[in-house]
Design a protein around this nucleic acid. Sequence first.
DNA 1: CATTAGCACTCCTCTCAAGTGAGTGCTAAC
DNA 2: GTTAGCACTCACTTGAGAGGAGTGCTAATG
Lengths: 345, 345
Amino acid sequence: MKNYERKLMILQAIIHSYISNPEPVGSRTIQKKYDLGVSPATIRNEMSDLEELGFLIQPHTSAGRIPSDKAFRLYVDRLMELQQIAFAQQRSIHNSLLHDLSEVEKLVENSAKLLSQLTEYTTFAISPKIEQDTLKRIRLIPVDKTKTLVVLITTSGIVKDFIIRNESDIAENQLNLISEFLTEKLANTPIYQLGYIIDHVLMEELENMRFSARSLLPMINNTLSEINDTKIFANGVLNIFNFPEYQDFDRAQSLVKFMQTKSNVADMLLNAGEDHDVRITIGRENLYDVLRECTMITATYTLKGQTVGRLALVGPTNMDYGSVIPLIRSVAREVNEILIEYYET
Amino acid sequence: MKNYERKLMILQAIIHSYISNPEPVGSRTIQKKYDLGVSPATIRNEMSDLEELGFLIQPHTSAGRIPSDKAFRLYVDRLMELQQIAFAQQRSIHNSLLHDLSEVEKLVENSAKLLSQLTEYTTFAISPKIEQDTLKRIRLIPVDKTKTLVVLITTSGIVKDFIIRNESDIAENQLNLISEFLTEKLANTPIYQLGYIIDHVLMEELENMRFSARSLLPMINNTLSEINDTKIFANGVLNIFNFPEYQDFDRAQSLVKFMQTKSNVADMLLNAGEDHDVRITIGRENLYDVLRECTMITATYTLKGQTVGRLALVGPTNMDYGSVIPLIRSVAREVNEILIEYYET
DNA sequence: CATTAGCACTCCTCTCAAGTGAGTGCTAAC
DNA sequence: GTTAGCACTCACTTGAGAGGAGTGCTAATG
């Protein structure tokens, strides 16, 4: 079985046809749409070989053939031609991302939203894990008699705030003193240790002090656990209904349900590994069975060598890789550059 | 045409059957499922009358009949029996709502989320309009050299914060001075006027001052407009796909699209009126044509006589009113009580 | 010996007609 | 006024037949 050259050409033509129109491809279609200089019969023979090699699948004898996961894998790795991204588009991506740089989390969130708009597929982003971060400053601000706003600022510039309720009115300068005291005591503590330190160290130290702080600390502690949550941003989950393979109601719905469960998505994203470049997982290569007809493409955001977020796109296996991959690459590159420029210090 | 008593009984039986199983109801079904002591022929005669009166609709001659919007209206107003809410459930609603009282907005948001979980329908909440509120305190907190956190606290206890980027490092005590200055100048200003005051009054006053404040003000102003947005919280929009009437792909999708457009929902909620009790709009009673097969139930949250939020539930016209209405009532009552208890002062 | 034309064969899909059954509406009897 | 009986309607199911896209094999061709 030689003449691989021609086999690849035919496979490429089939994949190409299947991407633009997700229906089984027959030998005559290939002959008409792509001028390969051979007759349908020859193409049929090659197709038969390709099926034997596992690149094509026949839904039933008298249908055409569709590319297998293996074919898409080959296509992505070797056959595909990436489209160039127009300078104007590159620029527009850059500018969109610059729109809100207040927090790394926002940047990550917006990058996923942008990618979903650009591709009309479903995207996810996972926010930086605040746990690895350390506290820089804590500040208490009075809201009214019974409420106090707690603002935490971490070394990497992430801001978290929440309101706690205090039993009695605490004067503003009191709160300022407490803020200073807590900042002094807790600065440079990793966020995930805050709870422990507050409970076991500070509470004892404060035992004999007149500070009202003592009543506030348990409240602060309670809320801390929620804040540690890694946030997941999903965009365009409903686009799944546009996937050609998911015109079937129930299957689309079960996929949507899967996608809306935070723990699933977190798992999916965290297991995606940390390539330098984008990583592509096709069909059954995915860990989850619900994704067996989907392709997931992930990219990682890093800052000072640390992973600070991850971006994922989920679409049908027959997505237009040639245009989608450059887009996600471009978004990821822009984000990483912006991270360096604005957050590295 | 007398003997309304029996007509109502039959109508009630039909509605009841249609709620538990949304298919056209025939005369024999009624006879078998509900022992009314009359034969199918009699029931047929009554059904024929009911159709003439506009309470029943026949999809085609040889099908059974389904209740019209008018029938559901009658059912809701007069026939329906409300289920009692178990004390345990009431309590669990109460406790869920207490979970996060940091802001009125959170309470409103959580109430909608809870109701969606309880009913498995789609719910919306619209947050209090911050515009009517006045500023109480503004506070600038350094995040790092180039970023400053701005915290706004309003008279009604709503907290808004956002990060702005400053060109040069500003010392912490500088920021404190600015905070005090701005608070003094801006306290009691309605939120919606802040932009104007900052632009036209403060900028001039600061003309000759050494404060770095001047460079910060435009940034603050820029972000203010975004904050004024009334927020809308949607839950379980995808539950629409479970509605029996929306098994049709396209119609479900157009409804989902409608629901995901913020302006539509805002409009829908704001036009819902301000009943003391819940308000129910059935089928074509709704202003929007996409909702012609939906029922919307709304409730209003008030604080000191002012509307501070609104809750809406959207489901199929044949929803189980008897259990849904008590639920939304219960949630609304709990929220209003919590508002009084925790936010009235 | 690779390529190709020709042709029988497969199997999905569409259409159409007949059969089925749930349900109605009318009439006449109780 | 109520009900049994019956003809009638009409959606839905089923199965047969036609149509068509596509394959696989064979034999001819250069």
